[in-house]
Structure formats: structure tokens, C-alpha cells
Lab assay of single mutants.
Amino acid sequence: MEVRTIKVFTTVDNINLHTQVVDMSMTYGQQFGPTYLDGADVTKIKPHNSHEGKTFYVLPNDDTLRVEAFEYYHTTDPSFLGRYMSALNHTKKWKYPQVNGLTSIKWADNNCYLATALLTLQQIELKFNPPALQDAYYRARAGEAANFCALILAYCNKTVGELGDVRETMSYLFQHANLDSCKRVLNVVCKTCGQQQTTLKGVEAVMYMGTLSYEQFKKGVQIPCTCGKQATKYLVQQESPFVMMSAPPAQYELKHGTFTCASEYTGNYQCGHYKHITSKETLYCIDGALLTKSSEYKGPITDVFYKENSYTTTIK
């Protein structure tokens, strides 16, 4: 009895394709271990004539594949690729409408935090270190965002349907971005203890939790000093293409032309909904596939993004 075979390709990165001759009487799992086709788990399936010449994702289970996976995804987590594939199996079914010149995501599976993050990423200057993220990001900007969303979920250790947080998501993504040249110098002034300067680099240099107003941050924000008295913390120097200011959701007025974009969060910790506000020729609110415009805006804002380049204080 002759062994019926077909020729397929296996890959971990969709760049390096490895030619395989597979036995049609055995499952993919018996031949390769966990195997995925377009995100779908085909591990328990036997090869079919229609699979001839198709590319299958496999887990990096030998040295060659491990090197290829690390170079593309910059992670050695053995569960990463499987999590990416199972997320992709959902995100490829989502709709990605162009809204006001940006790629958004039609609401499904509690994905409003991903839509808000995706919209924000198209408006701030950011370059990702893992080629996987950078490639998928370019495709997302062009309207094909399924891979990018699935990668975000995998890097953030999230599953489809789980509630997510924009600030946490951005923080994970910033860790995989090139923020080497970003720098922030802060000064804390206390009447009792004097003053202390701190220099922050990388992710810490672009994120701040405690106030939404970048102007206020430049002037000074009140913080408790270690001595128990009130101290003032203010920005001395900022070198970065953008800054992200966050605070627990509270009524906040966004003035046209003073910011790049913002995240609105309605609801409580267990259950809520994100919308995205962007400042173009007027203010726009993007909620999944829905767009509304207004000249002014007041609502429960939790993150505001500002364009920056270089700032030095005039406070002496």
C-alpha cells in the first residue's frame, strides 16, 4: 500500500517557510505537534488534498525554529505562539472599519479597549522592536488589523473576551517599542525636605499616572512627601515624541487643539466601556464603527496623549 502524501510549508514567522512532505494517514499533531492554519487549530486533523502548498504555523520545537521565533517575536515564552494563534482565530472574524481616516474595530468580545489602543497607536510616533509587531502594525494602518490585535493580546497575556485596560495595554506595548531616546527629568520640591531631581528613561519617561493635564504637570502637581507634608512635583525636561497622561476616570474637559487623542471610560472596574476622542479640525468621538463630532467635550476621561518633541522648564 502506497503512502499518500502532500507537500506543505511549516513556519513560526510566515517569513521562513520549511518544506514538509506530510503523510495523509496521520494527523498534523502526530507529525508536527500543535499546528495552526489561519489561526485555526488543526492539530487533530489529517492532511487533505486542499492543504497542498498551504502554510501551517507550528510551535518552535527545534533550534532553527526557536531562533526564527525569537528573532521575529522577541520572546522565548513557549506558550506565546499558541496564544497568538488562538487569538487570531477570533480577531480574523472582527470587522476593521476605516473611521475618520483611522483603522478602528467594530465592537465584539469586549474589544473596546483594543480599538482605543489601536486608534491611539496610529496617532503617536512609535516604532516597535519585534519585527512581528512592526509588520502587523503597518498592515493594521492599511486596514488589516487582525494579526496586530492578536499579537497585542498575546504580548499582554490576554484572551479574547476578557476586559482590558488601555493604560495597561499601552504599557505592555511600550515595553516592546523603541523608547531608548526618551528621557524625563522631574523635580520634587518640599518646604521641609528641599528639592530632589529624578531622571527617568524609556517607558517611565512617557507615562504618568495622577493627572490628565500635561500643562498642569509642567506647572506642578501636589504629591505627598515622605515627611508627610505636601510637596510639588513638576516637569523639568521632556525628550520624547509623545507623552501619555493618565488618571482614574473623572469628568474632564478636553479643549480642541490642546491634545492629540484621549480615552474615555464609562462604567466601573468590573464592567465598563471605552471610547476614543481625537482632536482634528474639530473633536471626534470614535466608538467602534461609530463616529460623532463636537466642538467641545466633557466626560469621564482616563488617558490623554500629547505630541511632544523637546521641553525644558522655565521655572527657576
Rank of each mutant, 00 (worst) to 15 (best):
A177W: 02
P241V: 00
G288C: 00
Y36W: 15
T226H: 14
Y155K: 05
P249V: 12
P60H: 07
T282P: 00
L119V: 05
H51V: 05
L59R: 08
V21R: 13
T11F: 04
K191V: 15
H51G: 05
Y274T: 00
A69W: 06
V203A: 12
G164E: 03
I223L: 09
Q122L: 04
L102D: 05
T64F: 09
P47C: 06
L153K: 05
E281I: 03
Q270E: 14
I152Q: 03
T292W: 06
Q20H: 14
K95Y: 10
T11E: 07
I277W: 15
T27P: 12
K95P: 06
R83L: 11
Q237Y: 14
C261I: 06
D63S: 09
S294E: 10
Y306R: 00
P78Q: 09
K298L: 13
V42L: 12
D38M: 09
G267D: 14
D180E: 11
Q197P: 07
Q20D: 07
R167K: 08
A136Q: 09
L186K: 00
N14Y: 05
Q122R: 04
E52W: 11
K255D: 09
E144S: 12
K201W: 15
Q98L: 13
T55E: 07
K293A: 14
L133C: 08
T226Y: 11
Q20I: 11
D13F: 05
T55C: 11
Y172E: 07
G101M: 03
E204T: 06
G257L: 05
Y269W: 15
N100H: 12
Y274E: 00
K219P: 00
I286P: 00
N89I: 14
N110I: 02
S79A: 15
V236I: 12
Y96A: 05
A205P: 02
K92L: 10
S86E: 15
V185A: 02
N14Q: 13
F305M: 00
L186N: 04
S50I: 13
V189Q: 08
Y113W: 08
F32Y: 08
S240I: 01
D109R: 03
Q270P: 02
T35H: 00
K7G: 12
V243K: 00
V8A: 11
K255T: 11
Y137C: 07
K95T: 13
G299N: 03
V203F: 13
G210D: 00
V188S: 07
E144K: 11
T278Y: 15
G220Y: 02
K7V: 09
V99N: 08
G257E: 11
N110F: 03
N309V: 14
V8R: 05
V3D: 14
G220Q: 03
E264F: 02
I301Y: 00
G39P: 04
S295C: 10
G272P: 02
E281D: 13
N61Q: 09
F32N: 07
A132Y: 01
E253G: 08
L37G: 07
Q134R: 13
F9K: 11
E144R: 08
K316G: 15
I152P: 00
G299M: 04
F70K: 10
K275V: 14
V243E: 00
E162F: 01
H273T: 02
H273N: 02
V206G: 00
L37M: 13
S246T: 00
D287V: 00
A150I: 02
D303S: 01
Y284L: 15
D38E: 12
V236C: 08
T76R: 10
G257C: 04
N129H: 13
Y214R: 03
A146W: 07
Q20F: 08
L102A: 06
T75F: 01
Y284R: 00
V203S: 10
T169E: 05
K307A: 14
N111L: 06
Y138A: 15
K307R: 13
V8D: 03
A136S: 10
A136E: 14
D165S: 15
H256P: 15
S263V: 13
T91I: 08
A87M: 02
W107R: 07
N100T: 07
I45N: 15
Y252S: 07
H74C: 07
L173G: 02
T27Y: 09
T159E: 15
P300E: 11
T198V: 14
P130E: 04
H276V: 02
I6K: 08
L17P: 12
E168K: 09
I223T: 12
T103D: 03
T169D: 03
L59T: 13
K298I: 14
A146H: 08
E308N: 09
Y214W: 09
S50D: 13
L88D: 04
M170N: 05
G299F: 01
D62A: 08
L151Y: 05
S263F: 01
N309G: 11
G228H: 02
L17H: 12
V58T: 10
F80L: 06
T91R: 05
D23Y: 09
I15H: 14
T292N: 11
N147K: 13
G299S: 02
M24Y: 10
S104W: 01
F32Q: 09
V12N: 08
M245N: 06
K7A: 14
P131L: 05
M24V: 14
V206H: 02
G272D: 00
C190Y: 03
L173V: 09
V3Y: 12
G143P: 03
V203M: 11
Q237C: 11
L290N: 15
Q222S: 13
A108H: 05
K293F: 09
K54M: 13
N16G: 06
N309E: 09
Q134L: 06
V221K: 04
Q122W: 04
T266E: 10
Y234A: 05
G220D: 04
C227L: 00
P47K: 04
G272W: 00
N89V: 14
C227N: 01
Y208H: 10
D180I: 05
C182M: 04
K201V: 12
Y306G: 01
T198C: 14
K229W: 09
E215P: 01
Q20Y: 10
G194W: 04
N157R: 09
I286V: 10
K106M: 12
T5R: 13
L186D: 07
A69R: 03
Y172K: 11
G82L: 14
C149E: 04
G33A: 05
V221H: 10
T198W: 11
S86H: 07
L254T: 03
F259D: 00
Y265R: 06
G101P: 04
K44N: 14
V99F: 14
L283Q: 01
Q238Y: 01
K280Q: 14
M245P: 01
R4V: 13
Y36M: 00
K229I: 08
Q195M: 15
N157E: 08
K54I: 14
V236R: 01
F174D: 04
I301S: 02
A140I: 13
D180A: 08
E264T: 06
A247G: 08
P97S: 11
H48D: 14
A117D: 03
W94C: 04
A247I: 02
Y234E: 01
Y252D: 00
T232K: 08
S79M: 14
H51M: 08
H273C: 04
D77K: 04
S104A: 11
L119M: 08
S310K: 12
T55A: 12
K219W: 01
G33L: 03
Q251M: 14
Q230M: 14
F148K: 03
V8F: 06
G33E: 04
Y214E: 01
L65R: 11
F242G: 04
P241W: 04
S246Q: 02
A177Y: 01
R167P: 04
L37P: 04
Y311D: 07
T278Q: 09
R167G: 01
T64C: 15
K46A: 14
V203G: 06
P78K: 11
D38W: 09
T314H: 15
Y96R: 04
D63H: 09
V3N: 14
T211N: 09
E168G: 09
V42F: 14
E125Y: 06
P241G: 10
Y172T: 12
A177M: 03
T199E: 11
T198L: 14
W107V: 05
L254Y: 01
P97M: 14
Q216F: 02
R4G: 13
E204W: 06
N178H: 09
Q251F: 13
V22G: 08
C261A: 05
T192A: 11
V22E: 05
N110S: 01
H48Y: 14
S246R: 05
A136R: 02
K219V: 10
M24W: 07
C149I: 10
Q237L: 13
G257S: 07
G29D: 08
Y297S: 02
I152W: 02
N61D: 10
K298S: 14
S310A: 12
Y306E: 02
R139M: 14
C227P: 01
Q197D: 07
L114E: 02
F70Y: 10
L37C: 12
L291H: 15
D62R: 08
E204M: 08
L102S: 06
T278G: 08
Q196I: 09
H273L: 03
Q134K: 11
K307N: 12
K255G: 07
I15V: 09
E71W: 05
F148G: 03
L119K: 02
V67S: 14
E281M: 01
